[in-house]
Amino acid sequence: MPEPAGPIAIYVDADACPVKAEVYKVAERHRLKVFVVANSFMQIPRDPMIERVLVAAGPDAADDWIAERAARGAIVITADIPLASRCIKAGADVIGPTGKPFTTDSIGMALATRNLMEDLRSTGEVTGGPRPFAAKDRSTFLSALDLAIVRLKRAGFGG
């Protein structure tokens, strides 16, 4: 009989995350631990399963904290493509706030697109950013998070 897997943990790259409330709701339903990682103080619900992690100010402090803990059985919520890439390599499930899962198959293209857009913005050819967050994104995110949790539970990870 295989060794039971550990608990599922959710790591939220929280500084600009528009779906924190949704993460809290889903995590409560499944009784999962949530780490809300930011480099500035942030209000979180009073719940022993939700932990605020304040990291030092710095461009990658929150990313580094999350990436060091990312592993199979972890779910990382981030829009940061380089962080998503690091977490996927560590075996974590990664979901963007719009509900788009980052996978081994999709992360290379996401990194290439990000780098291209960064280059185009730096030359002034593109001045806009991503499209605004929409209600449909929230719904898609909730479905993607539930799906990731169910998949991990089927793989033997617990709540």
Rank of each mutant, 00 (worst) to 15 (best):
V126S: 05
V150C: 07
S106W: 02
F102Y: 15
F141T: 13
T123R: 15
S85A: 15
Y24T: 02
V23T: 01
R154G: 12
F157E: 00
P130H: 11
G91F: 08
D137S: 09
M49S: 15
L32T: 12
R46I: 05
L32M: 15
V150R: 07
F102C: 04
V55E: 03
T78V: 08
L152D: 06
E118H: 05
K20A: 09
P82T: 01
E3W: 03
D63C: 11
K33E: 12
D93W: 09
P130I: 03
R52W: 01
P18W: 01
M1D: 10
G99F: 04
A144P: 05
G58F: 04
D146W: 06
K20N: 09
I107V: 15
P132M: 10
T127W: 07
A62T: 06
G91M: 11
E118G: 13
V126R: 12
G73D: 03
G108V: 03
L54D: 09
P101A: 08
A14L: 07
V37I: 12
T98G: 14
P59I: 00
A155T: 02
I81R: 00
S139R: 12
V150N: 05
L120G: 10
G99S: 06
R154T: 12
A110G: 03
R29H: 12
C17D: 09
R121A: 09
Y24M: 03
K136A: 14
I75P: 02
P7M: 01
G108D: 13
R46E: 14
A70P: 09
R154E: 12
R52L: 15
A57I: 03
A38N: 14
